[in-house]
């Protein structure tokens, strides 16, 4: 698993990246009440808006950590947005993206680097 400074996580399986927000981000947001997931087939560039996650007080944009094409969105979040709080780095994933350049994945932070980044906040 890799991480961004914007608190997204990525897990790579072949050329398909599963993307979500980190446990830290989910904790900071508070109770998630709605997730707007992307349409399948949409192409996204790294840094572009991929999804929107809403708590009662805030709506936050989630950015695509990597470029590619959306191949699946987590439909289960529509009825159970609380999964993002309960299992942010597992069942609470937002979308799967088929990525063009797997080397970009390696450039992201690993767990230790992300933890160190959190420490610095």
């Amino acid at each position: 698993m890799r991480f961004t400074k914007d608190h997204e996580w990525v897990a790579l399986d072949g050329d398909v990246a599963t993307i979500g927000i980190t446990a830290y981000a989910a904790e900071q947001l508070g109770d998630v009440v709605f997730v707007e997931t992307p349409e399948v087939g949409k192409t996204v560039s790294a840094g572009e808006g991929l999804a929107v996650v809403e708590s009662v007080k805030a709506a936050s944009d989630v950015y695509a950590p990597l470029s590619g094409e959306v191949v699946e969105a987590n439909a289960a979040l529509a009825d159970a947005p609380e999964t993002v709080n309960q299992a942010p780095e597992a069942g609470g994933w937002f979308a799967k993206v088929k990525i063009a350049d797997p080397s970009a994945y390696e450039a992201l932070m690993d767990r230790a680097a992300y933890d160190a980044f959190l420490e610095s906040l």
């Binding site: 809403e54 708590s55 009662v56 007080k57 805030a58 709506a59």
Partner: peptide, 12 residues
């Protein structure tokens, strides 16, 4: 559903 609204979403 006030996250749709101006006081939270501002320009969005």
């Amino acid at each position: 559903l006030s996250t749709r609204e101006q006081h939270i979403r501002r320009e969005k």
